[in-house]
């Protein structure tokens, strides 16, 4: 089923406000095999000039997953989650974020592109991440929806 582009762009996705937890950052550092103590030892982080453990480059994506129903918008658009792939991910950084800070994540659908006669749709979701109203980063996900029945 084709995604209605105008409906997608008009969707109002709820913002989510999340406090960055030190313990969670340490867990993430362990899971990715991080050996740089700046990401797990607050003393090392402070020696490197940080206020606390820094949020590593891709952890912002995990913060997006903290919302109660992070993929609910896809169901709202009639997309079958089993047909979805994460095609691309990008981040633009304006400042660092650290443990103890409270960040607000505001996603929105910025575009939907159809390729191969509708057999593949590319949904671009952009999330603005702010702290006290100041833009910290923007995260953009390209979600690929496969519609094999549309292939000629």
């Amino acid at each position: 089923m084709a995604i209605d582009v105008e409906q997608a762009k008009a969707l109002e996705l709820a913002p989510n406000t999340v406090k960055v937890e030190r313990g969670r950052l340490r867990f993430f550092a362990k899971a990715i095999g991080e050996t740089d103590p700046v990401y797990s030892d607050t003393d090392a982080a402070k020696r490197a000039g940080h206020s606390d453990l820094p949020v590593p480059p891709t952890f912002l994506f995990s913060m997006e997953l903290e919302s109660p129903d992070p993929f609910g918008y896809l169901a709202d658009l009639g997309v079958d989650l089993r047909r979805v792939l994460h095609g691309e991910q990008s981040f633009t950084y304006h400042s660092m974020a650290h443990a103890g800070e409270t960040l607000t994540l505001q996603p929105r659908i910025v575009d939907v592109l159809s390729k191969k006669g509708g057999a593949m749709e590319f949904l671009l979701k952009r999330t603005d991440i702010t702290r006290d109203g100041e833009l910290v980063a923007e995260a953009t996900s390209t979600i690929i929806v496969r519609n094999p029945e549309m292939a000629e």
Binding site: G33, P57, H86, G87, E88, T92
Partner: peptide, 29 residues
């Protein structure tokens, strides 16, 4: 997870420069 590989690549970057020097970072899976 694709994001595990993106996190590993992020380690490559932060091993090379302090993270505050990264302006943008993008991958295709």
């Amino acid at each position: 997870h694709g994001m595990l590989s993106m996190a590993y690549l992020g380690r490559l970057l932060t091993n090379w420069v302090p993270q505050g020097q990264i302006r943008s970072y993008r991958v295709r899976f």
